[in-house]
Amino acid sequence: MTLNGWLYVGSCFYLAVVVTLILGILEFDEWRPIWRSTVRRWLKLIGALVAIGVVVQLLSW
């Protein structure tokens, strides 16, 4: 994969962390539940994005 490809993949992971971490910070008052909810939401979000990517890849063959 080219540098641009890695940059886009890394950005996807990073921006997903930003979105889920901000939601956790707004929702909870302690860091432990914030990190727990962040990890849970991040895994769900990335899982959904990977699933969409697989479907698009399969349909494009």
Binding site: N4, L7, Y8, L15, V18, V19, I22, L26
Partner: peptide, 24 residues
């Protein structure tokens, strides 16, 4: 620049999440 659209996404996420923060 080839990264301009990606950069716009960073700015977009920053702005949209601040709307959430203001609402909260």
């Amino acid at each position: 620049h080839p990264w301009f659209d990606l950069a716009a996404l960073y700015l977009l996420v920053s702005g949209c999440m601040n709307y959430f923060c203001v609402g909260s």
